[in-house]
Amino acid sequence: MEKKNKTLRNLFIILVYTFLYLPIVILVVFSFNASKMNIVFTHFTFEWYAKLFQNKDLLEAFRNTMIIAVVSTAVSTVIGTMSAVVLQKYDFKGKDLVNKLIYIPIVIPEIVLGIALLSVYTLFHLNLGMFTLILSHIAFSIPFVITSVRSTLTQLSPTYEQAAYDLGAGKIRTFFDVTLPLIMPGVISGGTLAFTLSLDDVVISYFTAGPGSNTLPLKIYSMIKTGITPDVNALSSLMLLVVIIVLVSITYIQSKSIQKRGKV
């Protein structure tokens, strides 16, 4: 009875993973399919991977996406980390309001933030394009960095910083030499989150992009509408591969460092 129960439980878990991975596996499989239509598998080919590197528009969209993701992640990680520390350490007028405001981008529907930013850009006569895209991505990323950093900050014991002050270190020095290394896991996970959110954003980019600033998700959206070609499958297979490599190496490094610590 207990054993049967266990098989059923494992079966359920397997089903969930099947659901999660099925569309991805299908896309990877079809990226090697000779037929253009993505309907039946005819025979194996690398053609689409070769085609991918000739698809100028797709590569340009990829480049734009990377620029936006890198810049917005860098800016939002720095501002977000600073903000988390400031909001914890200092009191200032309107702090309560700021503390409430930063949750808004996390909780309201993305589309509302998208149209709100679009309206304001129009109000201030900003040219829609790379700049507005980066600004928008910064806008929705910062809150995620703040919450992520804040969760490590609250666990931080104030004694470390106190010790640094006692030893005569200044504020800035203490921050960079003591606080920052200690909250680094929060900073990194916040930054990673910002990066992945930026890479994948459809809704907000849809409203704030302009001519010449097509991002990969927007390009793929229009391709899905006009008939997708398998080079998109190839591109996503490659991106998936990169993601897996990065994740595996992070896990590997983490487990290594845990082992090391265990030895000491």
């Binding site: 999660l20 569309p23 896309l27 039946v40 992945t196 994948d200 990969l216 899905i224 993601v243």
Partner: peptide
């Protein structure tokens, strides 16, 4: 972690994967 991996790939691509699966002549 395995739950997270699919969500690090493009969400539109994954949605497109469902078209390939679900359409009349789909998988």
């Amino acid at each position: 972690k395995l739950v997270m991996i699919p969500f690090l790939t493009n969400s539109l691509i994954r949605t497109y994967g469902w078209i390939v699966l679900l359409r009349k002549s789909g998988v």
